[in-house]
């Protein structure tokens, strides 16, 4: 063993951690090496001196303080809610006061009462005659309102408004004499050709009414616009109104009659007779 190896092992030697074989070799080296013996002596001195460094006793308050701390900690820990199911249940239980239970029961009762009442009312009134009557009344009122509105709108100076008024007749299910009169008046007197055409269209849809047919026949000689005259002739064909032959023949005798209208009327007369 060389000095390097020996010095590395001095501490273990002092510590009694050296295996017996190494110990013997080191002993042998030390016997022959004064340098290493000196080194060992120094190390030994310090090593042994270290053991004499006193360790004081901790004061008794340390123990007292520790137990005080432990108690405080354990208490704080016990007070802190742990996240287990039982603790959650406990929390719910602590929430569950009699007042809350009463309130919950009351609100549940109210809700079930409402549901029950709803069912009861629905069953009782399902074939509701009164309700239907009410609806009928209401819808007839709406019809009347529409008629009123239409009639008043026909008086409107704006052609657009009058057009709209005429278009309302499609929505009026029960057309009465007033409406037909108003429409016929419009057909004969309205200054706007478009309004007259739309009115004619609306009246043609009401062709099943005898008053409308008569009115249309009377309207024939009163028309001066070729467009309306042609459209009116078409309506006569559509309605197969033979009573219109007389006024149509009268129209042919009119002076300054448009050629196109003339041929159209002649065609209509042929189709009707």
């Amino acid at each position: 063993m060389n000095c390097e190896g020996a010095k590395d092992r001095l501490l273990d030697y002092l510590n009694n951690e050296l295996p017996a074989a190494d110990r013997a070799t080191l002993d042998a080296h030390l016997a022959n090496c004064p340098d290493c013996r000196h080194e060992l002596a120094e190390t030994k001195q310090v090593w042994q001196l270290m053991a004499t460094v006193p360790t004081p006793e901790p004061r008794p308050d340390m123990r007292t303080n520790f137990y005080a701390m432990l108690d405080t900690f354990a208490e704080a820990e016990a007070a802190r809610p742990t996240r287990s199911w039982t603790s959650i249940l406990d929390q719910i239980k602590s929430f569950w006061t009699p007042t809350l239970a009463a309130r919950l029961a009351y609100s549940l009762l109210l809700v079930s009462l409402g549901v029950a009442a709803g069912y009861w009312l629905q069953q009782k009134q399902s074939p509701d005659v009164a309700y239907r009557q009410q609806i009928d009344t209401l819808s007839s009122q709406v019809q009347e309102m529409r008629q009123m509105m239409m009639l008043s709108m026909l008086e409107n100076p704006s052609a657009t408004e009058r057009l709209r008024a005429v278009s309302y007749t499609k929505d009026i299910s029960d057309v009465d004499g007033r409406v037909i009169d108003a429409l016929l008046t419009t057909l004969n007197n309205d200054p706007n050709v478009n309004v007259r055409l739309v009115t004619l269209e609306a009246l043609a849809d009401l062709g099943h009414d005898s008053r409308v047919r008569e009115g249309l026949i009377h309207a024939l000689p009163q028309q001066d616009s070729p467009l309306v005259q042609v459209a009116l002739a078409d309506v006569m064909v559509k309605l197969q109104e033979k009573r219109s032959l007389k006024p149509l023949r009268q129209m042919l005798r009119q002076e300054g009659l448009n050629d196109l209208v003339k041929s159209k009327i002649e065609q209509t007369i042929r189709e009707l007779s």
């Binding site: 460094v53 360790t55 004081p56 901790p58 004061r59 308050d61 340390m62 123990r63 303080n65 520790f66 701390m69």
Partner: peptide, 24 residues
């Protein structure tokens, strides 16, 4: 273990008072 711990802290810090606090 408190003695052993105190000893370690004492030898490391050199102060018994501080070591008592540190044990705590």
């Amino acid at each position: 273990y408190h003695r052993e711990l105190f000893g370690f802290l004492y030898h490391m810090s050199g102060s018994a008072d501080a070591s008592e606090d540190m044990v705590q």
